[in-house]
Nucleic acid binder design. Sequence first.
DNA 1: CAATTAAATTAGATTTAATCTAAATAGTGT
DNA 2: ACACTATTTAGATTAAATCTAATTTAATTG
Lengths: 157, 157
Amino acid sequence: MDKILDIDNIDLKIISLLNEDAKTPYTEIAKKVFVSSGTVHVRMKKLEDMGIVKSATLNIDFSKLGYDISAFLGIYLEKSSLYDTVIERLKEIAEVVSAYYTTGNYSIFAKIICRDTNHLRLVLDKIQKVDGIDRTETLIVLEESINRPIQFFDKEK
Amino acid sequence: MDKILDIDNIDLKIISLLNEDAKTPYTEIAKKVFVSSGTVHVRMKKLEDMGIVKSATLNIDFSKLGYDISAFLGIYLEKSSLYDTVIERLKEIAEVVSAYYTTGNYSIFAKIICRDTNHLRLVLDKIQKVDGIDRTETLIVLEESINRPIQFFDKEK
DNA sequence: CAATTAAATTAGATTTAATCTAAATAGTGT
DNA sequence: ACACTATTTAGATTAAATCTAATTTAATTG
């Protein structure tokens, strides 16, 4: 009775394999899943049409590109009703890569990526100047120990 | 004097374009960057060899796959020297998608993705039972308002 | 500053994959 | 069992990836 029922193990297997390497040819996926490559196409088209697979992106080592510091920000708003307008302001700041509405003390929980400590300071300044933001707490990332996709295994029938 | 100097604007442009859609054919990238597709190949090979481009992954809407709840966890350890061993335990828990060593009060900051509140409870239980973990704080994600790659523009020469 | 060498880029040929179509197969409900 | 629908498949066509050799560009040195 759930839209999830439109998705079977073949779909999940295809997603899992492509999620490890999105550039794997469909012909190769087809062999591993024991269907024809046409079926892989049809299934992927379905998954894209359903909005389950939204896009494919590169996994980039930003530190090697000179973006050496990332940080999580706990943002406190003056009034929680300001959430939407503050999010719009944050969208305009290129260094903000994600922002969430979460339970807990913070009004907004965000992540930013910066080149160095100086750049970080500039970005924090910019964020603290946004109207409606009261104050922020910064968790600077010193090490990324895990970063991987979910793995869903074959759920037995 | 920096490894970053091996990377020019052509590389950055290629990365930017492919980061929006990793499945864009190199021939199309080539046109937009005004080089031949062979050059795009060579550059991407270089970027992969340098470890800057690590892989390509799908951007999946997990909620549509039945994974409806994600949460950030602030984890307190009994002793901070236990970091490495606890990370190894967390790696064994499939629902843990990322974990960081950060400044601030938490010893480990992690993210998990679960199907529903019941599944979340199971996973939190499992995590709280890991040897060395003192207690955890949970920030449940109620809305993802921003989630995007960094955009680096052409840094003028 | 010309000549030599090295590096990067390119066009073109070949291999491989994506995509499309029509036929075959498997499911569904009556 | 029959008709209807949806899914899968093989095969053909189109398009892209990959490789190679040649050219162009840039860098280096006498």
